[in-house]
Amino acid sequence: MAKVTIDDVTIEVPDGTTILQAARMIGGDLVPPAMCYYSKLKTSGGYCRTCIVKVEQGSAKDPRPMPKPVASCRTTVMDGMVVRNITSPEVLEARSGVVEFLLINHPLDCPVCDQAGECHLQDLAYEHGKEETRYEFERREFEQIDIGDKVQLHMNRCILCYRCVKVADQLTDGRVHGVLNRGDVAEISTYIQNSIENDFSGNVIDVCPVGALTDKTFRFKSRVWYTKPVDAHRDCPHCTGKVRLWYKGDDVLRVTARKDKYGEVEEWICNECRFDKKTTSDWVIEGPSKVDRHSVISANHYENLRVLKATIDRQKKALPHGEKVNLGQGALDPNNIHGK
């Protein structure tokens, strides 16, 4: 067991726990946002850098601070570790930088994006972003491609979190899905635009934090906040059959896996449940879903907005807003440079 303190809250966790998992065990507003980590996918995390935190004390044995901010999703706790997340202005400043980076090339086409309302990037931008963009150049653009007849890829919206790549690697066999090219023209692709023909390929939609991979059978049917989530199950030969149905009136518009408050699926579902079972009579209804993830637009049936506001206020207090960084020659503090 290891004792770790995050934003002044101490918890004891099993060895090998990551800082992010420890924060989730504590819960509340000190949990770092995670855009690429996904607890159900091995080797996920480390890419987006939104979950970075500051390690003020490495461990009881070696109390030195870590020189650079670390990705909390990929850093395991040590006994006596002291971590700062939303109580560190440095972390918040760095995180707002990451959010800005994720947004500069994002098309901001929320009004026509099926993910709007349950998009993690929207949440993140709302919570950590700035009101205006400092990016004045053309945003990069890719062709929209179909991955089979049920899934569409809008590469413009992708944040390269690699989650769908891990799904293809770990859930489906005969992988034909990966990343092509490099740098800011890297793109998700399937082999010669092959469909990922597999019973579980539809899960790439659920893991995608943005609207880059969407369900074609739900395309433009409704804004998600006009639909009502209901938990249901069926006897399925492929998966557990435990799903969430999204109703508009009496119609099932969409079927997804059930997700927890961090937006992670509880259990993977198969393509048959997701795409082919869209009538109430296919399902045994359990009742309305409790969705407790905060979300920008879906305030009506999402509960945490009040908490979110409080968090933002707390963060604002920690951040020296309006303070301009002085660049005058010699004004640089060499202690702040992590060169060596």
């Binding site: 480390g46 890419y47 987006c48 850098r49 939104t50 930088g97 990451v98 980076f101 994720l102 500069i104 090339n105 990016y135 150049f137 944040i159 390269l160 690699y162 990343v179 090219n181 490099r182 740098g183 800011d184 023209v185 890297a186």
Partner: peptide, 14 residues
């Protein structure tokens, strides 16, 4: 840039 992490992927081009 290999494009794996956001600051380098987006920041270098900017």
């Amino acid at each position: 840039s290999c494009g794996q992490c956001s600051p380098c992927r987006e920041g270098t081009g900017w």
